Amino acid sequence: MNTEDVLDEFRGAGALREGHFILSSGRHSAMFLQKNLVFQYADRTERLCKALAAKIEARFGKPDVIVSPAVGAIIPGYETARWLGVPSMFVEREDGGFKLRRAFRIEPGARVVVIEDVITTGGSFREAVAPIEAAGGMILGCACIVDRSGGKADVGWPLVALATLDVPSWPADALPPELAALPAEEPGSKRLRA
């Protein structure tokens, strides 16, 4: 599966959106990949995650466990783990940082791949690594459905992406005039408060 095949899955689900979006990283973009519109379809999710599992295994060998940051990456993490035949876990935010909760336990020395859905800066991946390493897990690398940084995201470990796009994003204080003129929408969940 190549980048165009991945984008076809997003287009087919109505998940490739244009406008003014505030991303989970806090950066602004004229394009948003509404991945949950894709992940609501088991057949689309299966095709994407089966291909991602094959790329992971080709790059790292078979991991012992897949860990995903909640909430957005839980579904692709689970489905990719299913294709690899390994357990799927997730980290979730508690007191501002990611933690392993819900009785999830990583065995010391376990080979871990962290699955993300869409990355822009790699920030969620870097945050998700801390509780995994604290539990004794050995990070092999990161994998994602879409790397929208064009390969420039600093994840700190090797990165496997099913699709790589170079989609510009800007800090709030440096928006191009045509983007600043549009109302901003924040479709992600990272900064939602209870």
Rank of each mutant, 00 (worst) to 15 (best):
M1W: 06
M1F: 09
M1N: 00
M1I: 08
N2T: 05
T3Y: 05
T3N: 05
E4L: 12
V6R: 00
L7I: 09
L7G: 07
L7D: 03
E9R: 14
F10W: 09
R11W: 14
R11K: 12
G12Q: 00
A13T: 07
G14H: 14
A15I: 07
R17H: 14
E18D: 06
H20Q: 02
H20W: 05
I22T: 07
I22L: 10
L23T: 01
S25Y: 09
G26N: 07
G26K: 03
H28P: 04
S29R: 01
M31R: 15
L33Q: 07
Q34R: 12
L37K: 14
V38P: 03
V38M: 02
F39P: 05
E46D: 15
C49I: 00
A53P: 05
A54R: 14
A58M: 09
F60V: 03
K62Y: 04
D64E: 11
S68G: 15
P69H: 04
P69Q: 04
A70W: 11
A70G: 08
A70D: 08
V71Q: 12
I74H: 02
E79S: 10
E79Q: 13
T80R: 01
T80F: 01
A81V: 01
L84Q: 11
V86L: 10
V86E: 04
P87H: 12
S88F: 12
M89L: 14
F90V: 02
V91D: 03
E94R: 15
G96Q: 09
G97N: 14
G97Q: 15
G97K: 14
F98K: 12
R101P: 03
R102F: 01
A103D: 10
R105I: 11
R105Y: 09
R105G: 06
E107A: 14
A110F: 04
A110N: 03
V112D: 05
I115L: 02
E116H: 02
E116P: 01
D117P: 11
D117Y: 10
T120A: 14
F125C: 00
R126Y: 07
A130G: 07
P131C: 06
M138H: 15
M138V: 15
C142E: 10
C144L: 13
I145H: 05
I145N: 00
I145K: 03
G150E: 02
G151I: 11
V155K: 00
V155C: 14
G156E: 10
G156Y: 12
W157P: 08
A161R: 11
A161W: 11
L162W: 06
L162D: 01
T164F: 01
D166H: 06
P168N: 08
S169D: 07
A172T: 03
A172C: 03
L179S: 00
L179D: 01
A181M: 08
P183H: 11
E185V: 15
K190M: 08
R191E: 12
A194R: 15
